[in-house]
Design a protein around this nucleic acid. Sequence first.
RNA 1: CGGGAGGUAGUUCAGCCCGGUAGAAUACGUGGUUUGGGACCACGGGGUCGCAGGUUCGAAUCCUGUCCUCCCGACCA
Length: 492
Amino acid sequence: MSKEITSRSTDYSQWYNDLVIKGGLADYSAVRGCMVIKPYGFALWENMRDALDKMFKDTGHVNAYFPLFVPKSLFEAEEKNAEGFAKECAVVTHYRLKTDPNKKGALIVDPEAKLEEELVVRPTSEAIIWNTYKNWIQSYRDLPILINQWANVVRWEMRTRLFLRTAEFLWQEGHTAHATREEAIAEAETMLGVYADFVENWMALPVIKGLKSESERFAGAEITYCIEAMMQDGKALQAGTSHFLGQNFAKAFDVKFSDKDNKLDYVWATSWGVSTRLIGALVMAHSDDEGLILPPRIAPWQVVIIPIYRGEEQKAQLDGKIKELIQQLKSAGVRVKYDDNDNARPGWKFAEYEMKGVPVRVAIGLRDLENNTVELARRDTREKFTVPIDGLANRIVNLLDEVQQSIFNKAKAFRDSHITRVDSWDEFVKVLEEKGGFVSAFWDGTEEAEAAIKEKTKATIRCIPLNNPKEEGKCVLTGKPATQRVLFAQAY
RNA sequence: CGGGAGGUAGUUCAGCCCGGUAGAAUACGUGGUUUGGGACCACGGGGUCGCAGGUUCGAAUCCUGUCCUCCCGACCA
């Protein structure tokens, strides 16, 4: 079997697609823009989901589930939100099919089964959730509400890409309700911190925390916080967002509460989400021309063991030692795959698990059995070394940590070397064209300048970094006075 | 939504221009030799050629229509 991967230098997009398909994460489907997440890809998602879920619960949140469908009248209640999403909504208009009288075996939409009110397939759940919160909140004693849901959403995107932008995707969305503005803002900031923590420490992907400019803000939000990551081709990718929604949704859905002094006020809101898009970020940021490189903490398999033998007899000799090793690794909390499939030879397996990005490989043969050794190989650097079998589990646990750290360091070095400070328009254009990455430049704060820059260079303001130092300068485009640098980049 | 490519075996594709018994590689099954970086031999199973019409003695191939996917672009909280 030849599973050649297109190299990054030949065709970066094709390289990415090859990794996803040939690495076994996902497949195309018969539905435009929708993918099948295969078991290996889903196991990766499950690990990410489990880690995040624990972090949400540790910060006081609980899970719930709200309907997939949103009645149109609810959807349109918060005007800006509705407007922002209107052009990419799937809409249910009928509830029944019937057999086609003109064509045997075919079905048509039954015109008599038209819904009185159309149902919008959720592109996000603020509307249905705030409509529900209205019933749950009367007093400050009912607050805060700290709910998260794991769900699928649909956004009818014009152009889709595996994981990065699919018509249907899996995500989590947190929706919280608070008694004060300050508390809600603190919540949005806390969750941004949770995301940054997760993406950096679990996915080994360094991010920049920041604020979105007004034009990039979530529809219906007052503040959108984001984490931005850098891909290997120099394009930025929004890895997560956390929104302070003010009282917009409370007003749209008439959600009021009595405070301690029995005064009525609207409830303050946040929402925050990350999606399967993170998998796309992971693939693009770490992998190489040999295949995926997965960080140990979320890799479905952290270690693969490959036996090398001639004939059943030798296999039997190895098996005892390997079973013992698997047991040790498992009790050390390591996710281990033992591939003793006889159909494929070792070389084939080596290549296959490199493609799948398994962080550490253990090869063990008769030679090792005699010497009391194994061959260890790490995926990220492709280094191999022969080590004693005694104390192997411990050594592997340490190696996994090292790999995790090393992948992060590499991504961080790349990211840091792709933040360029520029002070002139010529430089700005040149850096974006030739080098890519983030460009740190002064911006006069106007939407006009932002739009003009996008028009000329395709670069958008990815974020205004948190704790950005105030500086005196001149807007890189207009030359008008500016008070701070912001990060521009072309983005996915 | 504009432009491009494509739909034939599980997969990748050839065949189509010039109509005449559906092919290759790979994967799969059986047997054997192999096994420390993508093994080899032999035999074998597997396809209403996206769908619907039409032309023809005869259509994967020509004509018309239609559906779907992918890529590039515009769009993208």
